[in-house]
């Protein structure tokens, strides 16, 4: 067993020994702005860089042209040929010091004031609305992928080519977090832009709570935890998937304020619109921005 262990752990150690563990960042002497490098090692076959990667790069570059304030700025894409099996693509991004996870960790005891939450959520939704209007799904929205600048500006990161698991994360269960995953994804049904709204809802609750809302350990556990709050959906809402509704015990919806006590009435209404089981009935980013929650005061 020990032998087996060393055999399987060795490679992991080598990752740590390499470039992994550090990030290159730089300051532009002229503008004073910071940039950071994120390199993605793309595995190639005899046909070279996979077409999907080429498309992803093209997409990322196109998104840059719009220069949306709530999407992390990609400054350049630099490719270097490593071997015939691997091409290293280095993405040069603007550098932001912290993500929403650290931001929330740092927030003082009573939590963020609702005005601040409103501002964060509005920016998040604006970034998302921009992506969705360009038919880009984020698919893995979580506090780690939402950067918050020192001036409190929200920037979405980690979509497209940038969204790839890294070595470290691939080996720890933490990374494959299911906590923000929409029910339709957990059920392996078809999915579209509403998945990002679900994640936004989870994040919305977390901004108040300063701890995640649904912390499932497996897909089924995640779904169970979701249904404990929103209730077991009706049979007609259940998608045509191999995981059947009767695998879950009947639950009635619980008041959301039991889980997010500090939320205002309008906030709670919006949150429920986001945490709607049926993706077709879930609120869109565009509609969410028009919600009374953002209009009041």
């Amino acid at each position: 067993m020990a032998q087996e262990c060393s055999l399987q752990y060795e490679p992991v150690a080598e990752i740590g020994g390499g470039a992994y563990g550090t990030v290159y960042k730089a300051r532009d002497k002229e503008s004073g702005q910071f940039v950071a490098l994120k390199s993605v090692r793309v595995q190639t076959d005899q046909n070279g860089l996979p077409l999907s990667t080429v498309r992803e790069v093209a997409l990322l570059k196109r998104m840059v042209l719009f220069d949306h304030p709530n999407v992390v700025k990609l400054m350049d894409v630099c490719a270097t040929l490593r071997t015939d099996q691997e091409t290293k693509v280095t993405l040069v991004f603007e550098h932001v010091d912290q993500d929403l996870r650290t931001y929330l960790d740092k927030a003082p005891a009573p939590g963020l004031p609702e005005g601040r939450i409103k501002d964060l959520m509005r920016q998040l939704l604006q970034g998302l609305e921009f992506l969705h209007s360009h038919l880009v799904l984020h698919r893995d929205l979580k506090p780690e992928n939402i950067l918050v600048t020192s001036r409190g500006q929200v920037k979405l990161a980690d979509f497209g080519l940038a969204r790839m698991y890294n070595c470290h994360m691939a080996l720890t269960p933490v990374v494959v977090t299911l906590w923000y995953r929409a029910p339709e994804v957990l059920l392996q049904s078809t999915y579209a832009t509403p998945v990002d709204i679900w994640s936004t809802g989870c994040i919305f609750a977390e901004v108040y709570r300063r701890k995640p809302l649904f912390c499932g350990e497996s897909e089924v556990d995640q779904l169970t935890k979701i249904f404990e709050v929103i209730g077991l959906p009706a049979e007609e809402e259940w998608p045509d998937v191999s995981i059947k509704r009767d695998n879950f015990s009947p639950q009635s919806p619980q008041p959301i304020t039991d889980f997010v006590p500090d939320i205002s009435e309008q906030g709670a209404a919006l949150l429920l619109d986001m945490l709607t089981f049926d993706p077709l009935k879930r609120i869109s980013a565009f509609k969410a921005l028009e919600h009374p929650f953002f209009q009041e005061d």
């Binding site: 990030v23 993605v40 090692r41 595995q43 890294n166 994360m169």
Partner: peptide, 9 residues
Amino acid sequence: PVFYQDSIQ
């Protein structure tokens, strides 16, 4: 931020 860490595709 975790986002900047290297990854593999």
